[in-house]
Design a protein around this nucleic acid. Structure first.
Lengths: 207, 207
DNA sequence: TGATGATTTGACCGAATGGTCAGCGGCAGG
DNA sequence: CCTGCCGCTGACCATTCGGTCAAATCATCA
């Protein structure tokens, strides 16, 4: 039984190929809709060979998800209490949007998992994620109390940032077809629009 | 071969039960991840009986999607050129949010279809949806030119409204677990937050 | 070079999948 | 009461599914 983490060069290469192919397939069809044959074909390996590196379909899925959560929360963790509050949150939004641009498959994998009821990451959502949100919401509340941020609901502010930024990854096709363009152009426009929207929302009004 | 639209009372009842069950299952697992046995069980019918009313799994899916698109676009169609621009768009946002609250399964079905590459509704996205967006974007541009709306990118404004409102249906579980609440409470809070955000974003600044 | 373990695969398995079909029961109209 | 059709089902089918295994091949190093 090979260890889940690669030890030899060839194990590293194949494990990575499998995870990459699995990300491709799972992110599009969800766990139940994806098949091992599909993943094997994308990875350029035979199905039994997949199962030589991972004991089951679910193990591949779990391997993807467990690595994903930390990556996904990193931008929010980087929301620091030093710096100008409005710009801090704008930076967070831009980091999140950049994640959607660079890692759309990861975003879709996450979306698929949530849509299916988050059976494999519910504890992390109720644990790590909730704790992190509580923490950052407290920080935002402090900023508001100091008058450095317009009074907004901190949690729904975060929800809206997640929603707007991930939309460009998850609904990628819709965005491109409605705009009638291809490539990364929507992200540049989105950066401008979202910067404008959140600046208007968050800038405190002296009165 | 029974016609797709019910003619007798019993056909109406069963067709509706099937579509309702299929909506339940498809919206959670996507087309490929859903099974006829699952739908049959939820509908309280036998699998062959499903296929007495619909010729195939795909036919059920198509029946759901074709009915969905019009319902889904109705709120945007109702964006009128009379009335105060800011309040018109706020009303649209609230209608969309109300749709998420009342029809979360429809929202998830749509999200699943887009995630999987929109194989069955791509033409409608490039056709009806794009045309509608172009039309309403022109209206918004007019409002901006008249100084009755802050200058924003109209299409990305619509994207952000879709994203934020549908988020409460599609990521329902995450929202509830992170907030630590159950029921419709998030929708009331979201209405307040989003009203505040879009009012701040859209209200023109006299200078 | 030979030995040894890592890697790969064809053949296969039982279960689940979408779908078919002959026929049964019941109900409506004559 | 008979007839005929609508609604429904159990049994079945071919394919695909996740997964196993023995055997073949490959790579490495003594």
């Amino acid at each position: 039984m090979p260890s889940p983490r690669p030890r030899t060069r060839i194990q590293a290469r194949n494990s990575e190929a499998i995870l990459d192919a699995a990300l491709e397939v799972f992110s599009q069809y969800g766990f139940r809709g994806a098949t091992l044959d599909q993943i094997a074909e994308v990875a350029g390996l035979s199905k039994p060979n997949l199962l030589y590196y991972f004991p089951s379909k679910e193990a591949i899925h779990i391997a993807l998800l467990s690595g994903l959560m930390d990556t996904w929360l990193a931008p929010l963790r980087a929301l620091h209490h030093d710096g100008e509050p409005v710009e801090e949150i704008l930076d967070y939004m831009r980091r999140k949007l950049e994640m959607s641009r660079l890692y759309p498959r990861e975003s879709r994998l996450f979306a698929n998992e949530i849509l299916q009821g988050a059976p494999r990451i519910l504890d992390q959502i109720e644990g790590d994620l909730k704790a992190l949100v509580d923490d950052k919401a407290a920080l935002i509340t402090t900023w508001i109390a100091e008058g450095r941020l317009a009074p907004v609901d901190p949690r729904h502010l975060l929800f809206s940032i997640w929603a707007t930024t991930q939309h460009y990854a998850d609904f990628d096709i819709q965005v491109h077809r409605v705009l009638g363009v291809e490539g990364d152009a929507p992200y540049a426009e989105a950066t401008r629009f979202l910067t404008q929207m959140y600046r208007a929302t968050l800038t405190p009004q002296p009165r």
